[in-house]
Design a binder for these strands. Sequence first.
RNA 1: GAUUCCGUAGCUCAGUUGGAUAGAGCAACAGAUUUCUAAUCUGUCGGUCGUGAGUUCGAAUCUCGCCGGGAUCACCA
Length: 595
Amino acid sequence: MKSIENLISENTKQAIASIYNVSSDGITVTIQPTRKEFEGDFTIVVFPFTPLTKKGPEQTAKDLGEYLKREVAEIEDYNVIKGFLNLVINKAYWIDFLKASWSNKEYGIAKPADGANTIMLEYSSPNTNKPLHLGHVRNNLIGLATSRILEAAGNKVIKVNLVNDRGIHICKSMLAWKKWGDGETPESSGMKGDHLIGKYYVLFDKNYKQEMKDLLAAGMSEEDAEKKSALMGEAREMLLKWEAGDKETIDLWKMMNTWVYAGFDVTYKMLGVSFDKIYYESQTYLLGKEIVAEGLEKGVFFKKQDGSVWIDLTADGLDEKVLLRSDGTSVYMTQDLGTAVSRSQEFKFNGLVYIVGNEQEYHFKVLFLILKKLGYAWANGCFHLSYGMVELPEGKMKSREGTVVDADDLMNEMIKTAEETTKALGKIQNFDSEEAAKLYKTIGLGALKYFILKVDPKKKMLFNPKESIDFEGNTGPFIQYTYARICSLQNKAKELNYAAEINVTDISKKEKEILIKVYEFNKIIAEAATSYSPALVANYVYELVKEYNQYYHDYPVIKEENVDLRSLRIAISQLVGSVIHNGMWLLGIDVPERM
RNA sequence: GAUUCCGUAGCUCAGUUGGAUAGAGCAACAGAUUUCUAAUCUGUCGGUCGUGAGUUCGAAUCUCGCCGGGAUCACCA
């Protein structure tokens, strides 16, 4: 079937050319869904045409409406309100659409064709010195959802994770464990590995702060105190040993990493995220030096007297940026350059998307600019999906100050709340304990994931731990509930041998509204893919579900005695169910068949 | 100081390339269950879209100023 928007747009252009005898080249026809309070399905805004038509907006709209009604079979009627031309689409069009779609469980989900674009998506990228918190959760959920949306829009996606497993912060945890850990392990303590490491990171910070306080009290300046700090000195020493490959240090590092990764795996599994390839900074941090050499040769970079290497970006409205320290060691930018180039050699991709917080906008701006200046064509496909911070009522989360919402704790609390709510509603008489546990997880995580994903990624968002995440209204469980009701209808239809068939020639206004909404799904996926915004999908699914719940309330389905109407409604319900299922799948949210 | 993002109902958020009388949820209040799952549905209340100008047939949306808030600008990552 041809897209209805194209049909309207093309015929409107022809109408202008034919009625007013002017060229309609280059005209864009703005088509929007007709507002509920007016009659019609789609609306054309005619104001932009009046300079061409030399007539008033109302007369123009009338002329066009008359033409479209006469010439286009799908357009049944029209009406004009001010400069707005409201078009009524033939019900047969929507009935045909339903016939073609209702039994398609994959509705909306495209499969990548040969020659589809390949997009590499980097997300998650945790540090190995502490467990994941709510900010990481947002990152991971956006990553998961974006990867699925890009795939559903017909792209191939390579999901990668760049784990920050080296540097001074890991040494802090290692040092604290060595000093005060007394051989504690995840087994001996019963703690999840990442939480155990996090405990020592906090312990380091606590002792370091005490040490600083003492030094300051002894009359030292802050700057001197930082240099004199024995703890920090030991941590730096440990980093040097690590870089030198000292066996004892490396062994300790490896052992503690094993703990952290075991912990991360549990969290990732619970969230439902996965990766095609995991990069480790311990293996990439030396990359990039040859890129710097190359840039020096090309004259893109320059060397200062002390030997440090820079790029001057003042002409681009940015500053000078260091690329190699005077002692020849790498900085963050060096390794990101190296990593990007080595990825482009390993994989052939059209796009490279970094899902990283908006605090690093400047960094990526510079990174992409340098890659372009070095002449890498693929640099034009680089994009920083810059998402906003998750804030608490008192402001930003800070790991060291303990004002973080831990990912594991939060998920477990959500699941517990789901259990309590479900039990209070008395809904699960004939569930065995395994089914019940699965349901609590589905609902609890559904509430959390939807809560996060319905917000535009670019914007910062607020999470108030004191107010639990809702299960009613514009929420994950609301959508899941609607899906479960549809499944229940389908089961009943099956038991009674009721068919879903389309033998009608008429549908109600509500049914048409639902079908138009379903029809929009593909467009929403495409928009969500180009704008990297899972929130568009989330809000779309909510709107559809809201419509469907009104329908469910007002129209009997199984109870309907007229066979044709009953079959029609079963078919519509099934189609809506598929869209809910697929839409939520795009968000990485499971839907239950019963709840 | 420079760059940049944000400001929509009491709270949390939608609002497509500028389009009709700015929408949801939560909270508050009032209703709906002899009927397919009430985690639902219906209604009431709630707005100078931070503010002042400009652009035009038309501005929450574009431009400029101002007010308020955040982020970034290190031989940190």
